[in-house]
Each structure stands twice: as C-alpha cells, then as structure tokens.
Amino acid sequence: MNITIDVQDINSRVEIQVKGEIDAYTAPKLRETLFPLSEQENISMVVDLSDVSYMDSTGLGVFVGLFKSVRSHNGEFRLVGLSERLRRLFDITGLAEIIDINSDAEGGLK
C-alpha cells in the first residue's frame, strides 16, 4: 500500500498527480500534503487521479475536505482522470453534482 504525490506549483495553479492507493493508511499523507495548498487565496487546484488504483471512502473524505477548503478561499477545485469505478463513487455520493470531475485536463497532466 503506497502512494506518491507529485505537486507542481505554477503561480496560483497547482497540479497534483497522485499514484497508488488511497485508503485509511495513505489518506493522512494526502491530506497533509494538499491541505496547506488549499488554503491559498484564489488557488486553482487540479488533482489527476489516473494512476490511482484504489480509493475508498476515506479518500473521498479528503477530497470533499479539500474542495470545501479551496471553495472557502475563493479558489477552483477539479479532479481529472477518474476511472469508471471512481466516477461511480462520486456519482453515488452526489459529489459529482458539486465537484468538477468532468473537465479533462488538456491532454492530461504530464
């Protein structure tokens, strides 16, 4: 069970590439890495999940928390590269209605 988080901070646009599994063990690392970023004013945060092989509801909690934090700092939050399974998770929980999971990053994040 491992996770790598690659953060590219370009001005007020942050691109994050997550690889591996997001579960109760790795979620704290994800939260600790991304939360401070989400608290910058007017930030635009894009998280690429194309290399995430597994995510449970703990991961969902992290992303909802991030979304709320970014929104309260007048920023923009997007998730890209969701697998069919992840998409279903966001659909069922109703989160797809409030979090942008559909706009694919141009050509994906490198």
Partner: peptide, 9 residues
C-alpha cells in the same frame, strides 16, 4: 436514488 452525502452542504 440521487442525493448528496450528509454534512457537505
């Protein structure tokens, strides 16, 4: 049945 998680909005 559609609906958002409790505690978000």
């Amino acid at each position: 049945a559609k609906g958002l998680l409790l505690g978000v909005e």
